[in-house]
Design a binder for these strands. Structure first.
Length: 284
DNA sequence: CGTCCAGGTCTAC
DNA sequence: GGTAGACCTGGACGC
């Protein structure tokens, strides 16, 4: 099912406060009134989703707000038809045109930045541990005890000891705290990076100004958080996986040559190539 | 118990 | 502008 492709689009999508299981997403976030609620998305039909939210009854006008959030997180509004046209002409990527390619996004770019920094230079298990600790220790809990992802404001106010001794983020603790302070102070506006009028180069320049964000993190964020698909995510997982699947050398040049025909979608094409098997065990 | 390394980045040449 | 070295952490190894 298409929802599975979104929920399993990349590893960061299943980090807390998200829970992905059996084709269903549960997450926790603050509503327009600041109240924390749990949001559940289930597949319903070919390409839409059924959204429910736990907690006190919602005013009708708020219900739409939650639907919009779900739609944005799942990138349901993205038009990938130019990518599908290119993919249809590729012998190994024609399958994506059935509706793959939507990269699940966090509610805020800030959340995606924090999680991406937590993927750098460590095992995936360490990433899960750090993000879980961040959510539990700095996220606000709702009526049922579930924690939302921490806001930049709360992370900015937390002493460094929380990041080092509590979250055990190592040297990343300073990066996380500084990023939060830059966002909370207004020094950088990450949500503004969603503006399609901003040139890619400008978006990249601003992301690189964040401590702990380098070339890999920029590529990952452009792909997962901002829906800009030209950059190849090159890291210690993608390169060996590419080599294993293609038989080609685990080198950037080989990847660039292979996906050059995809133009501004080459990063997404590469990612699809790498993750094709992620949903093959699922039915439908 | 020491070394290496995992979905890199930063600093100093 | 390109490239070593250091960097927190914890799990996986070799000895």
């Amino acid at each position: 099912m298409i929802l599975d492709r979104v929920l399993l689009s990349h590893g960061v999508a299943s980090l807390p406060p998200n829970i992905v299981s059996s084709g269903m997403l549960t997450t926790v976030l603050a509503g327009p009134d600041g109240g924390i609620r749990r949001l559940t998305v289930r597949g319903s039909g070919a390409d839409c989703a059924l959204v429910t939210y736990d907690g006190p009854r919602l005013p009708a006008r708020e219900a739409q707000w939650w639907m919009d959030q779900a739609s944005r997180i799942l990138r349901l509004e993205d038009d990938l038809s130019p990518f599908y046209e290119l993919a249809a002409a590729d012998p190994e990527l024609g399958w994506v045109a059935a509706g793959a390619g939507r990269m699940m996004a966090a509610p805020t770019v800030f959340e995606e930045v924090v999680k991406t920094i937590c993927t750098t230079n460590c095992s995936w298990g360490a990433t899960e541990r750090m993000v879980k600790a961040l959510v539990e220790q700095l996220g606000v809990a709702g009526w049922d005890g579930f924690h939302a992802f921490p806001t930049a404001e709360r992370m900015a106010q937390a002493p460094l000891a929380v990041f080092s001794e509590g979250v055990r983020a190592g040297y990343r603790g300073r990066y996380l705290q500084e990023c939060a302070q830059m966002v909370a102070s207004g020094q950088i506006n990450l949500e503004e990076l969603r503006d399609p009028e901003l040139p890619d180069e400008e978006v990249e320049r601003r992301l690189l100004s964040l401590p702990g964000v380098g070339p890999y993190a920029v590529s990952h964020l452009m792909l997962t958080a901002l829906g800009r698909y030209h950059r190849l995510v090159l890291d210690s997982w993608t390169l060996p996986t590419w080599a294993k699947l293609s038989g080609a050398a685990p080198e950037a040049r080989a990847v660039e040559a292979r996906f050059e025909p995809f133009g501004r979608y080459r990063g997404l094409a590469f990612w699809m190539y790498l993750t094709k098997s992620w949903t093959e065990s699922q039915a439908g």
